[in-house]
Design a binder for these strands. Structure first.
Lengths: 205, 205
DNA sequence: GCGATCTTGTACTGATCGGTATAGTTGTGG
DNA sequence: CCACAACTATACCGATCAGTACAAGATCGC
């Protein structure tokens, strides 16, 4: 049995609040004082529960990815490449424009350009984005191998194109773009997909 | 005639160095000590020449836009909407992947998510991006009115789509994407444009 | 109740933040 | 040669930074 004085705050609930602070202000723009105030706990409690600022941010990132970027895995599980891409774009548009939550994407705006001290955090975000791109590329490669996409398509280029749209919409969301506006961008992108890849059905023979 | 001891450093040359520091580290990630070291001047000289950190950043932004984002005006002056869009995308791909210079775009990564203290700077960048989008939208609206684009096209959506690609490529460049990789994305995007808008020629009827 | 163990709040650390006072230096105009 | 103006360099300001020492408070096993 765990002895000692019990913690007076809920770990997950507190972590969720920390997610929003880092999401809104970025890693370097967030001071420990901002966190203790938003979390309603004292400094030593924060350090005891989450370690230093960087390790807290990494836990925040993990929770953000698990909750807010869950659409990624769902999208990859879609039966077709087209559905995957549409799910990705719509998921990004929605996740970056949630009412009552910060605009944009933590993995983009959390630490895009930083001073040397924050380099490890910046690299962690970059690494996460790259792994996401790799997963999308693998999914598109499978679609091509299955004959769903034309054999001449380059999954790497396609994945980078899709991710560029996702990151770009995230930047626009951070700048105040509405969900409706981003949905229009997604519609346009999917129309382009259909025009380029050849409609909603694979080649009929 | 200007009397007094002459300045020992070149203003423009020093400003160019400041551009690179803010470009690489972002607004909040840049300390005055970083600047004085990179610029080779003392703290009071910096303040006398450029004012405080925020006003220096605004001058840096103006110079960056004038030099590194010059492709924007050139693109808008292209004779066709297609040439404009291609110029924009290629210009962004090139400007964010210059050898020997920071990767990405200052107007995106300079202050995408910040603490409250840096809010004015963040808003200034957002405002600049929005004005760029508006200019592109106006150019595309003109193309539609001239009959170059189908009458049902929505210039606002199209402009947001193009800007999303630009910002997205900028994020990817900041994450280490190469110029060649981004050029492939541009090629794909332009193929989509042609497939969607209907080829390189306006309707012949 | 007692000691062990953990969390709490307060108060503090050295370092760094943006910004400046001040004195010394180097030039120009008369 | 002198008075003045602008720049340079050092050294400093209060505030804030991330991180912690320490003592009081709370809960467990015994």
């Amino acid at each position: 049995m765990r002895t000692g004085r019990p913690r007076e705050f809920d770990l997950d609930r507190t972590l969720d609040r920390a997610v929003r602070v880092f999401w809104r202000q970025g890693y370097e723009g967030t001071a420990i004082a901002d966190l203790t105030e938003a979390l309603g706990i004292n400094r030593p409690s924060l350090y005891a529960a989450f370690g230093n600022k960087e390790s807290l941010f990494r836990r925040v990132l993990a929770r953000y990815v698990e909750q807010r970027a869950a659409y990624l895995d769902l999208a990859l599980a879609e039966p077709t490449a087209r559905a995957t891409v549409e799910h990705l774009l719509l998921g990004a548009a929605d996740a970056t424009t949630c009412r009552g939550e910060p605009r944009g994407c933590l993995t983009v705006q959390g630490a895009l350009a930083t001073g040397p001290d924050s380099d490890p955090v910046r690299r962690a975000l970059t690494s996460w984005r790259r792994s996401g791109e790799a997963a999308i590329r693998a999914r598109l490669a499978r679609a091509r191998d299955d004959g769903e996409l034309p054999p001449h398509t380059d999954p790497a280029v396609l994945a980078r194109y899709v991710c560029a749209l996702i990151y770009g919409m995230s930047v626009q969301a951070a700048g105040g773009a509405t969900r409706t506006q981003l949905h229009r961008v997604v519609e346009l992108s999917m129309a382009g997909w259909d025009a380029l890849v050849g409609g909603e059905q694979p080649a009929a023979g």
